[in-house]
Every structure is written in structure tokens, then in C-alpha cells.
Design a protein around this nucleic acid. Structure first.
Lengths: 136, 136
DNA sequence: GTAGATGCAAAGTATTTGCGACAAG
DNA sequence: CTTGTCGCAAATACTTTGCATCTAC
């Protein structure tokens, strides 16, 4: 069920303006994790009149609506990615900056167990691995 | 082997100024994870002439020297804690902001395994759990 | 004595916001 | 219509930096 960002907006009652459509489109086509500046650059190529303030407002709105995920990787600006069904975490190449997405159900399970152990219900988590590529 | 921050400075060749001594002392006595503003407040009570620029410079220096750890928890300023032998991760109470430190060797092991699987050597990681307290 | 540290204020980043004009439902 | 959005520029929040002075070693 590949639901588009526009469909998500409708179902969540988010008003669909032209600017939002462009931003949604760009995010859908981005498989990397652009920061707001980069997103603004890409958006500007489609409609140069969209302001960066709107980009900031929109990613924030989309994040609150569960449409985008915001990441604050080490020492930098916030970066965004489209949120789809499957949750995943990130492995970041500290040399190249390349980001690999991964899923490890066992780690997820253990996280819930840890929260449990302290009397908490896990509502969110952040797991980032930083590594250097091995010379095969 | 409870090594003080001052001893660590000496062994790492970090010059020990009065300001740094005060900041080290305050961090050693802080079991929470203060941000720079809060640290500056505490430091000011001991020596009001220390500027916030020095606090920023010092936490950065201490972090680079492996004396303090910097955390960027959700949506806020950077927060610091003294770095001791035992590594740990954080479970954050999303209601109260309370931070619980925990260690889970199994998760650590799995993280290395994931990195391994993608051909990477794990050099660092960030794991934060966000939870709400269960009504026991 | 000298390299490095400090205080101050000014400059940087990243992000948010007030406001009048404008557009979606 | 009316509520919410946009573009703009100004404001904010956090952090860094240039420079003259001072201090640990």
C-alpha cells in the first residue's frame, strides 16, 4: 500500500497548497536524507518563489502529522526523510556521510524490554550507529 | 579507580586554569545532564566572572579530550555529562524529562553485529529511549 | 617569557515568527 | 467568506570567534 504524501495529507486534514505539493513531491523522490537547505534548493528548482520559511513550516507540520521523520545526526542540521510503514534505524559512515537504513527486530525487542524493566512504556526511540567501512 | 576531571586534564595535557577547575568541579557534582546555560548558572555561583563563552569553549575542549560526553536529546540544546569508565545509554521520561541511565550488553553486542553485517566497524553509537511511566 | 586562555561584544548558524497579502475548502 | 498559509524581513536561540588582555607552565 504505497500511500503518497498527498493522500496522507488528505486523510490527516492537512490543507494541500501548491507549495506543500511541491515539497511532498521532492521528499518522495529523495532517497537520501536532505536537510532543510538542501530540500529548499531542490524545491526552488521546481518553484523558485517558495520561501525557505515555508519549507521550515512545512517539514515541521509534516513531522507533527507523522508524514516525515526528523533526524538530528551528529553535529549538524536537522535532516528529513519520508516516513513509510516500516520503521528503521540508521548506520552512518563517518568518513563519507553515507547513510544505510537497517532494521533489527531483536534490538527493537530488547529496547522495549529495557523500558519495561524501569517501569516505562516505550513511545519512541533513536538509534544511530556510526562506523567506518572495513577494507573487505 | 575514580579519576577526577583534573587528573584527566593533566594526563591529557590540558592546561588547568581556574575557570576549568570550577567547570570540572561543577560537572563532577552534577548527576543530571546540564545544558550549557544551566552549567553556566551553577558555575556563576562559584565564580561570577566566568563568561559563558569560556563555558562553551571548555565543554567543547573537554568533549574532544574525552572528559565529557555531549548529548543532543530531542529538540533542545546540547547537554553534557561526565564520562566515566562504564558506557551507558539513556531512557528519557517524556513527561517529566527525567533521565535514566542504563546498560544493556546484549543491545551493544547486536549493534556491533549489525555494523559488521554491512561491512562496518562500529566506532560510536547513540541510543535513546523515550518512554512514559506506567501506572504501576 | 610565551603559548595558550579569557572576557567581551560582535558575528554566525539554524530556525521561528509577526504581519499584511493571498488562497483553499 | 473565513480560516489558515505564504513571503518577507526581522527576531530568536544557541554557539562560535576576533581581539586585546591576562595567566599557567
Amino acid at each position: 500500500m504505497p500511500e503518497t504524501i498527498e493522500e496522507k495529507c488528505l486523510s490527516k486534514g492537512v490543507k494541500l497548497t501548491d507549495q506543500r505539493k511541491v515539497i511532498a513531491q521532492v521528499m518522495s523522490q529523495s532517497s537520501d536524507h536532505p536537510d532543510v537547505d538542501e530540500l529548499y534548493n531542490r524545491v526552488s528548482k521546481i518553484d523558485p518563489k517558495i520561501s525557505i520559511a515555508t519549507v521550515y513550516r512545512t517539514v515541521k507540520l509534516f513531522e507533527e502529522s507523522g508524514i516525515l521523520a526528523k533526524h538530528e545526526f551528529k553535529g549538524g542540521k536537522a535532516r528529513y526523510e519520508e516516513l513509510n510503514e516500516g520503521h528503521h534505524d540508521h548506520l552512518i559512515d563517518v568518513k563519507s556521510g553515507e547513510i544505510i537504513e537497517f532494521v533489527d527486530e531483536e534490538i527493537e525487542k530488547l529496547q522495549r524490554k529495557v523500558a519495561e524493566k524501569y517501569g516505562y512504556k516505550l513511545v519512541d526511540h533513536k538509534l544511530e550507529l556510526y562506523g567506518i567501512k572495513k577494507k573487505s
